[in-house]
């Protein structure tokens, strides 16, 4: 009977020893999630970048599900990028939302030798004027339900 606590103590000690060194926060279970944004006038901010920040977790290495707005206004969230560019989803819960729209109004020619579409580095001006770039002050919130649906289902933005 006494061996069991001893074993448990040993296992704990081992876990502590193994756990030393840099540890990653454990990955959370994700559900495929997609939402929709549109402008007040009904247009779509194609190419805008949507970043979710957990409502109650400000730790720098917390999850930050992200997605790009497509032609039809939908964005699919990726929490843990994998080998394919296919979005994996987001952990259910409440989030604050940041949206930046830095794609240029005028598309330019594509040079395949650039290794992808060309573009100026980092983030030209945000076409929302930074109104939604801070999730704490953007006023946008979404909840990811267990089935992957987002509420509100459409975020309406003012350009």
């Amino acid at each position: 009977m006494t061996t069991r606590p001893t074993l448990a103590a040993l296992a704990t000690a081992l876990a502590v020893v193994v756990g030393c060194g840099p540890t990653d926060s454990p990955r959370q279970a994700v559900v495929p999630a997609q939402g929709k944004v549109k402008l007040k006038d009904g247009k779509v901010p194609e190419g805008a970048e949507v970043t979710l920040l957990p409502a109650n977790d400000d730790s720098p290495d917390g999850v930050k599900p992200r997605g790009r707005v497509g032609k039809d206004g939908t964005f699919r969230l990726t929490t843990y990028p994998g080998a394919s560019a296919e979005p994996d989803g987001a952990p259910p819960g409440e989030y604050r939302v940041a949206i930046r729209w830095t794609t240029r109004k005028r598309a330019s020619a594509v040079d395949p030798d650039e290794g992808g579409p060309p573009g100026p580095p980092s983030l030209a001006g945000d076409r929302f004027g930074e109104k939604y770039s801070n999730p704490k002050s953007s006023g946008l919130r979404v909840t990811v339900a267990a089935d992957g649906s987002l509420s509100p289902s459409v975020l309406v933005l003012v350009n």
Binding site: E49, P81, T103, G116, P117, G119, P120, S122, A124
Partner: peptide
Amino acid sequence: AVALEDLDNPDNSTN
């Protein structure tokens, strides 16, 4: 082997 977004380029390319 992970596909990461190229954040330094706003034309939305993924590496």
